[in-house]
């Protein structure tokens, strides 16, 4: 399985390498924004990945509350951390793109504000996981926090449609040059590969930490659920 994980990483990195050439040399400049529009190819996919990671985190949190399992808790932790990484870089890149196009690094526009709230919420989620020592309490509290934080995700997505926003609305392949669509999709798959690799790797670290905390057997199977810790008490 580790070979598959590293193969995904190598393919994703190779795709990013080719993607850099496609984005910086092959794709045409935008009619309005000129060359600065090329930031889109790394900004948009990273924000997509942050939202995807938040959705995975939400799914795992709900699943944990229904059926307590260290696996879903570890996956929730991993997806939150990777989501914060992509979210932070995505927002920073948006800020860099905003400077030459809007004339400011930051504006309290609905899209930017909701995205910043999500980042702060998930940073708080990760801080909560650090502060609570009891693994069960930590898992339950962080699951509830994650569900509350996820309310912001649809707000981010629809903010540009619901409110008069400085940020542009979602583009469609019908309105964008086919070359631009191809480069954007190429990067989206490259970042998806990285997302899978990062979450997978971080999940293994989280599971190793749980084993260490609970002194669980090295091989965790389906039966190794939260009851293990209850029995250990």
């Amino acid at each position: 399985m580790n070979r598959v994980r590293w193969a995904i990483f190598i393919v994703a990195v190779a795709m990013l390498g080719v993607g850099a050439w496609l984005a910086l040399a092959w794709a045409p400049p935008d009619r309005e924004m000129g060359d600065v529009q090329r930031i889109m190819y790394v900004h948009v996919p990273q924000v997509w990945m942050a939202l995807l990671a938040a959705t995975l985190n939400f799914g795992c949190s709900v699943a944990y509350l229904f059926k307590k399992s260290w696996k879903t808790d570890a996956l929730a932790e991993a997806s939150a951390e990777v989501g914060v990484l992509f979210g932070a870089v995505g927002i920073s890149l948006g800020s860099i793109w905003g400077r030459p196009t809007w004339g400011v690094w930051w504006a309290w526009d609905p899209r930017l504000t909701t995205a910043a709230i999500l980042l702060v919420a998930y940073a708080g989620y990760l801080a909560l996981r650090r502060f609570v020592e009891d693994p069960e309490r930590r898992a339950v509290w962080s699951a509830v926090t994650a569900i509350v934080a996820y309310v912001d995700v649809p707000l981010i997505w629809y903010s540009v449609q619901w409110w008069r926003s400085l940020h542009q609305v979602q583009s469609s392949p019908k309105t964008v040059d086919p070359q631009m669509t191809l480069v954007l999709r190429w990067h989206a798959f490259a970042f998806l590969g990285l997302l899978i690799f990062f979450i997978w790797s971080r999940y293994q670290i989280a599971m190793a930490a749980r084993k260490h905390e609970l002194a669980m057997p090295a091989e965790l199977d389906e039966g190794a659920r939260i009851q293990t810790s209850q029995a250990a008490r």
Binding site: D35, V42, I96, R99
Partner: peptide
């Protein structure tokens, strides 16, 4: 033509931050 001229420094900064973070 409504074009923003130049701005490559912003583009390079964005790609640099992305690769550094990865």
């Amino acid at each position: 033509a409504g074009r923003i001229v130049g701005g490559w420094e912003y583009v390079y900064a964005a790609y640099g931050i992305t690769y550094a973070a990865i």
